[in-house]
Design a protein around this nucleic acid. Structure first.
Lengths: 210, 210
DNA sequence: GACAGCCGACATGTATACAACTCCTCGGTT
DNA sequence: AACCGAGGAGTTGTATACATGTCGGCTGTC
């Protein structure tokens, strides 16, 4: 596993909290390599939006202000909405089957409360869908957004209802893609992301209609 | 000027054509620095979507297939549409004045046929607008898209009508932002980008089968 | 006692040397 | 003649050493 992937995993796993300082020598020891690959990793992760670099002062894990949270999900809704649309238009039967499988897996693990697996499968689902969109550029634009969202998981958490909604959204997106219906796929994706945003923002935004 | 900025300028200026190989030692000589900063620059430009890196094989300027051109502008319409919307909601009178000034400058240079200045002011306009959106994340997502579009300028060119349309779009966007009307701002921005796409696809697109 | 300026420790920025890998070439074999 | 493999040139990947800049503490003066 390359240094950049390893460091990204550490950050996304919460090993380093937002705002934490990332010293080059310290990381070099942790990762078991010299400073050179560490520097490369930091530059790339900065471009991905995971860390913040200041000249001659070093790197920190980004700490997005809460205000940006709404923008991030608004962006994801627009960009991943396009990805879902494209996927519905171009996905092969094999792709569809795989997507559905991930969604089912995600449901099963969610029912058993295995949150680690849920996080992993959720990421896999979204990334797969983007890949199906066909454009490598699209995927590049999105991955940083997804990563940012992951960093924000500390802001709030999914309750049982929100989790069930999320699971159903994934299944429905897979269904829409299988049906080859771009409008449906995009609409569900947008609903999925706005629902997630509402949950992360906290109870004051949630409807109490249930 | 740092190595990464300098290299980016060279690529965007067309000094290196899409598909060109970017040797580290060669760039080190051109930029007058050692290989270390060159490597950093390449890693960062890869994340920005300007160059393509293959392990142990080096870097090349990206060469997007023509098929991706439509996706790029569809993405820009969605993402920059959001930026325009946000800008309309939050821009200060000073910001608005500056934006309008850039649009006017752009018009004047366009009338005199000074294409270099037009390119520069066009970039400045779009980047300023994104900054007004307020979210640094938004700007980050967009810049790579804009760069990609610039790389594609070889695919076609603006005729006189398209240029006039583009100029008017910029002025209208500034007006919409000044009016604080998010719907208007986003709508014009979308029109602006789809218009640009149509011009770039142009009649010559059919010859360019990829 | 407080503040300005200096000094030193430590971090990042850069350069250079070496290791590992890829691809092309050349020679031999089938 | 075509193909396979070994060798070498050239590239990227990594490590280490040095240069430069920043921040904190200390000392001297007012």
């Amino acid at each position: 596993m390359s240094a950049v992937d390893e460091l990204r995993s550490l950050i996304l796993a919460g090993q380093y909290a937002p705002g934490d300082r990332l010293g080059e020598v310290e990381l070099a020891e942790v990762l078991g390599v010299s400073r050179t690959p560490v520097r490369e990793a930091l530059r790339r992760l900065e471009a991905e939006g995971l860390v913040e670099l200041v000249a001659n002062k070093g790197a920190r894990v980004v700490a997005y202000p809460g205000r940006d949270l709404e923008t991030i999900f608004e962006l994801r809704a627009r960009v991943e909405g396009l990805a879902a649309r494209q996927a519905a238009l171009t996905a092969s039967p094999d792709d569809v089957a795989r997507l559905h499988e991930v969604a089912v897996d995600l449901r099963d693990h969610a029912e058993r409360g295995e949150l680690d697996a849920v996080y992993r499968l959720n990421s896999e689902f979204h990334q797969s869908l983007v890949r199906l969109g066909g454009s490598p550029l699209l995927g590049q634009s999105i991955s940083s957004l997804i990563h940012s969202s992951v960093l924000l998981r500390t802001y709030g958490s999914f309750d049982e209802d929100a989790m069930r909604r999320s699971v159903n959204h994934h299944l429905e997106i897979a269904a829409a893609v299988r049906a080859g219906d771009p409008e449906w796929a995009e609409a569900v994706m947008r609903a999925h992301l706005f629902s997630a945003r509402a949950s992360l923002l906290g109870p004051r935004y949630q409807e109490r209609t249930t």
